Simulated assay, not measured.
Amino acid sequence: MGRGRAKAKQTKVARDLKYRTHETDFGALAQELHGGPDPASRAEEPVEDDEWSDYAERSSRD
């Protein structure tokens, strides 16, 4: 008992996935699958070294 609601919800979700029209960006999918450039990394500006980075590198070598 009690499985009726869960099964009805699963059926509803399955039908929604089956019959819903999807707008797929195949270009973005191909880039993701082939290891193309990440859109988030293109938007970032190059990171500049701060003035204290030289000191951090020296202390880590010692």
Rank of each mutant, 00 (worst) to 15 (best):
M1C: 12
M1T: 11
G2D: 12
G2F: 10
G2C: 03
G4F: 15
G4K: 13
R5G: 12
A6R: 15
K7Y: 02
K7H: 04
K7E: 11
K7N: 02
K9A: 14
Q10G: 11
T11L: 15
K12G: 06
V13R: 13
V13W: 06
R15E: 15
D16K: 15
D16S: 10
L17V: 04
L17P: 00
K18E: 14
Y19H: 08
Y19L: 07
Y19P: 00
R20I: 10
T21D: 09
T21Q: 08
H22C: 09
H22G: 07
E23A: 12
E23N: 10
T24G: 00
T24L: 14
T24I: 13
D25V: 00
F26S: 07
F26C: 05
F26Y: 05
G27I: 03
A28R: 03
L29E: 09
Q31T: 08
Q31P: 03
H34Q: 14
H34Y: 12
G35Q: 01
G35F: 01
G35R: 02
G36W: 05
G36I: 01
G36P: 01
G36E: 06
P37E: 11
P37Q: 14
P37H: 10
P39E: 09
P39C: 04
P39K: 00
A40D: 11
S41I: 11
S41K: 13
S41Y: 06
R42M: 14
R42F: 09
R42S: 08
A43F: 01
E44I: 05
E45K: 02
E45I: 04
E45D: 01
E45Q: 07
P46Q: 00
P46C: 07
P46Y: 00
V47G: 05
E48S: 05
E48C: 00
E48W: 06
E48D: 07
D49H: 08
D50F: 04
D50Q: 01
D50I: 01
W52Q: 08
W52R: 09
W52K: 09
S53R: 07
D54W: 05
Y55P: 01
R58M: 15
S59M: 15
S59D: 15
S60T: 08
S60Q: 12
R61E: 15
D62A: 12
